[in-house]
């Protein structure tokens, strides 16, 4: 049982992530009166990229060789730690601390930024600069939103959080909602979604995330894309299992599949929400984004203050 849970935790995020991207694109296309591609298309895209030969820039260093693996491995590690099937404790549970999760994400962002600067083209540096600016401002909101819940439950362990949040009195739901709003804005920012970035743009001057991986090709590009999809799924699973905690307090073999089903439903609902939000907003001016991020920060701070007192 323990072993099966570990296998599920490790494999869930990489396997389901491209499906989430496919669903997002399909919904955005439907909102534009288009038919859109099949929801399994990202899988085919990844397979296609893995089979291609690779072209490296002659100015690239070891960073370009190593960073795709570091980024992807960070995402797998986070995926193994987050509460997918939280009621079943396993040896990894004690490591499922939200500070660890945030730090691993920063590690991935750091290596992405290095990758953008590595080849020395004009656009990668721009993308890295923008990404670091946004990351610096986003982390505060993300951290405070988790901190406020951690104070309510008196633990920073994500597994503990997801199990005990469902038992909180309804007077704490205001804190939960504020924290969720702060978390949601951080979700959009960290995953390069609207209004922060256009994930499907072809204009290099406007890219934030794609500009950093502009020199990657073949299998390394596939790893970057897969890691980006995994990051989105990780955030959605965190949102689903921590802020919408119903459906977790069960245990046993049959309820394992039930728990996964419930999780998938919640994930689907959140994906639809993200996709619809993306279709209805435009990209904000770059120097207006700090306003939005400081909103997230203030919401997290208010939630934290309410949790303390």
């Amino acid at each position: 049982m323990n072993f099966a849970v570990i296998i599920i935790q490790v494999l869930f995020v990489p396997l389901v992530a491209p499906l989430i991207i496919g669903v997002t694109r399909r919904i955005k296309a439907a909102m534009q009166n288009r038919r859109g591609a099949d929801i399994f298309q990202p899988y085919r895209d990844l397979i296609k990229l893995f089979r291609k030969a690779e072209v490296l820039s002659e100015d690239a260093t070891t960073i370009s060789l190593v960073s795709p693996y570091v980024v992807f491995a960070s995402m797998i590690t986070i995926g193994a730690l987050i509460p997918i099937v939280p009621f079943a404790g396993n040896i990894l549970s004690s490591y499922a601390d939200f500070i660890v999760v945030i730090s691993l994400m920063i590690l991935a962002t750091f290596f992405l930024a290095l990758n953008g600067l590595d080849a020395g083209n004009a656009f990668g540096g721009l993308g890295s600069s923008r990404e670091m600016t946004l990351a610096a401002l986003t982390e505060a909101g993300l951290f405070f939103s988790f901190m406020s819940i951690a104070l309510l439950v008196q633990s920073t362990n994500l597994i503990t959080l997801s199990i005990h949040i469902g038992t909180l009195p309804s007077s704490d739901w205001l804190i939960l909602s504020l924290a969720f709003l702060a978390f949601f804005i951080a979700l959009l920012a960290e995953n390069a979604r609207y209004p922060f970035d256009n994930p499907s743009t072809h204009l290099e001057l406007t890219m934030v995330h794609e500009a950093m991986i502009i020199e990657a090709s073949g299998p390394r590009l596939a790893l970057f894309e897969w890691a980006a999809a995994s990051k989105l799924l990780i955030f959605i699973v965190l949102g689903a299992n921590i802020f919408i905690p119903w459906g977790i307090i069960i245990s046993g073999w049959q309820s394992l599949s039930l728990a996964i089903l419930v999780l998938l439903c919640k994930v689907f609902v959140l994906t639809v929400a993200v996709a619809m939000l993306e279709s209805m907003t435009a990209k904000l001016r770059f120097f207006r984004l700090p306003d939005l991020l400081s909103t997230s920060f203030m919401l997290g701070l208010i939630a934290l203050a309410l949790a303390i007192f």
Binding site: K28, M31, Q32, N33, R34, Y194, P195, N198, L203, T206, S279, T281, A282, K283
Partner: peptide
């Protein structure tokens, strides 16, 4: 270019 893809499609 503002990111409002609905306008582009229509």
């Amino acid at each position: 270019d503002t990111g409002f893809n609905f306008g582009l499609a229509q």
